[in-house]
Structure formats: structure tokens, C-alpha cells
Amino acid sequence: MLVRFPDVFPLKPCRYHEVTGAGSYSFAAICCGLVSSRVLWFAEGWVPEVLNPNGLQAYCDPHQLLVGKCGNAADVLAATEEALRSGAVPLVVAELTKPLTLTSGRRLQLAAEAGASTGLMIVQEGMGSNATQTRWRVSPRYSADVSTLMQWELIKNKAGTCGDWRIDWNDEAHRISVVSEPVQRANSAHEAY
């Protein structure tokens, strides 16, 4: 049976997930917007690209974000694991610059289970770990009508098959809607979740 979008998103809790691709930051921001509590976001301090709260506010409340600047990749993993294990926040996001090994992925999975919180790793293409629950590839898509269209590909799923959706972010309603592929069904209405 093919996987349905509501089965895989919002992300399964008590697990850790991976996202890759050019649109991974807005994906992470949308996930932050779905939880009503504080979110911890870890990144390495030397990375020149920084989050812009003024841009994030389209997706989530920047006041909910606590950003941890770590010295190196190992610190990011250690801090993420500790935050997941404590269960003090429902969602922990981490930007990784190095490949995630099976061992560290498994550790994150166990920590997420122990703390009943969700982890989301932003990884580079092909640098994920097999221990992840799901892996998404998110890329922005050009469309003549809207400027918020994205392609969400589920490229790994532990509990089902993979999938591929076109997602539109609605700025006013602050939610996503799944858009049908125009090539498959012409004149289709937006199918909202």
C-alpha cells in the first residue's frame, strides 16, 4: 500500500528524522511551527549562514527558538542527544555538517525514545544514517502562480513506502497544503490537510 501524507507528516514523535535539500530549513521551520512549545536548534558556531528570525516568523514564532552554538560537529551530536534524552522540549533540530554514522544515528534514536521527544537532523545530501525513522528531501519548486511551492520527497521510511508530494505553504493560514501534480490531474483543487 502506498504511503499517505498524513501517515508521515507531522513527523512521528519519539523518533528522529532527517531532512536534506535546499528547502530543509523551511521544512524544519514548519516543524517548529507545529509544536506549541520551546524548540532547541543546534548548529556549529563557525557556519557563516545563520538563521534569520524575521524570515522564520512566516513559519513559526522566533521567540520559541533557542539556538545552541556548538564548537564542533561532535558537540552538536552530544548536545542534541542530551536535549532529546531530557525530554524538556518536544522538538530538537540540529544542523549537521558531517556524515551521521549508524552508531550516532542509533544513539539519537534511543535518546528520542527515552525522552519522548522528536529529533530533526538537517543533513547534507547522502550524509544521513540508516537509523533514521524518515528522511525527506525538500526542494523549492518554481511555479507561475505561487512563490511558496515545494517538493517534499520521502526518500526513506522505516514504517512504509516512500512518497513524493508537492506542498504549498499558505502564509495567511500558516499551514501547508498538499497540491496535486498538475500533470496527473488537470484542473484539480488544492487538497488541504
Binding site: L40, L51, P53, V67, G68, K69, A79
Partner: peptide, 27 residues
């Protein structure tokens, strides 16, 4: 109680990566 949990977590993380490195955004 929820805040206490978060503050304890920040303390523990702060002792690992430095307390001033756990930041928030202000407009």
C-alpha cells in the same frame, strides 16, 4: 515544572558548550 526542566537542560548543555552559546532571538 516544564520551565524548570528546560532550565536544567540549558544548564547541563551550557556546561558542555558554554552557557552564553545558548541563545535566543530578540527583535
Amino acid at each position: 515544572r516544564q520551565d524548570d526542566g528546560l532550565h536544567d537542560l540549558i544548564t547541563r548543555l551550557g556546561n558542555r558548550i558554554g552557557l552564553e552559546n545558548i541563545q535566543r532571538f530578540l527583535p
